[in-house]
């Protein structure tokens, strides 16, 4: 069961959204105006979602491996450039120690390969680091502790 960031905690998501998750190509070819959820592959151009950004409520970004950081930039583009305020869900090889960086890039839901990892993530301390640098110079990358008290992604 995927986890969602809510009120500063990662909570299991009751799956009300059994949506059809389309891939970018399907979206581009079929143009369904009612599309709710879409999945970006790492090589997809996140900005191509522009025409649907107001109707989409969920965008999945994928991690074929936790060492592949492309989805970090995709999430930033969705939040920053397209102003997307809905759910950005990390799917794939999602690991506990990477969650805080993902959150800082704008990801607010997580769906792991296995249930154990999800349980681990749900009980992990989200924010080890007491202070950070980049959010001083680039406030668009807030620290996790700021985000946890903030309602931006909820």
């Amino acid at each position: 069961m995927p986890l969602k960031l809510r009120d500063g905690k990662l909570v299991s998501h009751e799956c009300t959204d059994q949506d059809d998750v389309l891939c970018l190509l399907q979206l581009q070819e079929q143009h369904p105006h009612s599309a709710q959820a879409v999945r970006l592959n790492p090589e997809d151009n996140a900005l191509a979602l522009q025409p649907w950004i107001r109707t989409l409520s969920r965008i999945d970004v994928t991690y074929p491996a936790y060492t592949d950081g492309r989805a970090h930039s995709q999430a930033r583009l969705l939040r920053q450039r397209l102003g997307f305020a809905g759910e950005i869900r990390a799917v794939g090889d999602v690991r506990i120690d990477q969650i805080s960086m993902m959150i800082r890039c704008g990801i607010n839901a997580f769906e792991c390969f296995d249930a154990d990892t999800e349980t681990g993530i749900a009980s992990a301390q989200l924010c080890h680091l007491s202070a950070l640098y980049n959010n001083r110079y680039q406030p668009e990358y807030p620290s996790v502790s700021t985000l946890l008290t903030d309602t931006v992604f909820q």
Partner: peptide, 16 residues
């Protein structure tokens, strides 16, 4: 020093 601080644990560029 500015670059050091900015790049330290930069959330977007940690998995290049």
């Amino acid at each position: 020093e500015l670059i050091r601080q900015w790049s330290t644990l930069h959330p977007e560029f940690n998995w290049l």
